[in-house]
Simulated scan of single mutants.
Amino acid sequence: MNPSLVCLCFVLISWRLAAAACSDIEVRLNMLEQQLKQGYRLNELPKLQRQQRLLSSRLQNCLDQQQAKSVQSKNTPPAKSGDLSQLAKGRAFSSSHLLLTAPYQGEQQQAWLKFYREPAQCYGVRDTAQIAWCAELRQQAKLQFDRQWQQKLAKSPPK
């Protein structure tokens, strides 16, 4: 049997085993996150958060090791920790990114932050009716802020 073929088979088998290990960690992390969303006792929170951090760290390490093996199997030097171009290549699991945008920018954002303060009863809410009330309150405040902002723009001279 061709030695390069044997090597290729070994790489594929080890890659699949690593992918299975990463998948197992990912499944456990998803189950823990579901538990966090569904509810828990307040005294359980620190333990659950520690488990979440541990599993997230293990998953990232597993994916990094898998990435390093994939890169090494292609006879290229392993990616440096800060080299994002190499990180995207060869990763077995899809990754997503989170884009956070604010409804306002610049001066308008600063004005909004001064204008609206979330009521204390809207923090850490799990009751659907309370969430709806908070969202409605925020929407009404946003409409009022937009009207006031437009009036301010209409009164101010152009720059």
Rank of each mutant, 00 (worst) to 15 (best):
K114H: 11
L113T: 09
M1G: 14
R138P: 03
L12V: 12
R58Q: 10
Q151G: 06
C22V: 00
A88P: 01
Q51P: 01
C9A: 15
R28M: 03
K80M: 06
L8C: 15
W112P: 00
S4T: 08
N2Y: 05
Q34R: 12
A120V: 12
C122M: 02
W15L: 08
C134N: 02
S156A: 15
Q105C: 07
C122G: 01
P78W: 01
L42A: 10
P46C: 03
Y123M: 11
T128A: 15
N43Y: 10
Q148S: 06
Q86P: 04
Q38P: 05
S85H: 09
A154Y: 06
P119Y: 01
Q72T: 06
F10A: 13
K155Y: 09
S73E: 00
L17I: 10
V27C: 06
Q72L: 15
S73R: 05
C62I: 02
T101I: 10
K114V: 08
A79I: 01
R53G: 05
C122P: 03
L48S: 01
Q108C: 08
N75Y: 02
E44F: 04
R41P: 00
D24S: 11
K74D: 05
S73I: 00
P157S: 06
N43C: 11
C134T: 02
T76R: 08
L100N: 10
R126L: 09
R58W: 05
W133I: 04
G106I: 02
K37G: 00
L63D: 00
D24R: 15
I131A: 14
L99C: 12
L63N: 03
L5K: 14
Y116H: 03
K159N: 09
L54G: 10
D127S: 12
A120I: 11
C7P: 04
L8A: 15
I13W: 11
E44W: 03
V27E: 07
L143C: 12
L98V: 14
Q49Y: 09
E26F: 03
L5Y: 08
P119S: 02
G39I: 02
R58T: 02
M1F: 12
C7V: 09
Q51E: 08
A141D: 02
V27D: 04
E26T: 09
A120S: 13
Q65Y: 11
S94F: 09
Q49R: 13
W112M: 02
P3Q: 06
R53L: 13
A129E: 14
M1N: 13
G39V: 05
C22R: 00
L48Q: 01
E136G: 09
A19D: 00
Q52S: 10
V125Y: 07
C122Q: 01
L17S: 12
E44S: 07
A129W: 07
V71R: 03
A132W: 08
Q110F: 04
K80H: 07
C22N: 02
A18M: 12
L8S: 14
R117C: 06
W15Y: 15
L42K: 12
K114D: 11
N30Y: 05
E26A: 15
A92V: 07
R126T: 08
L153G: 03
R53P: 01
A21D: 06
R41W: 11
N61E: 14
P3G: 04
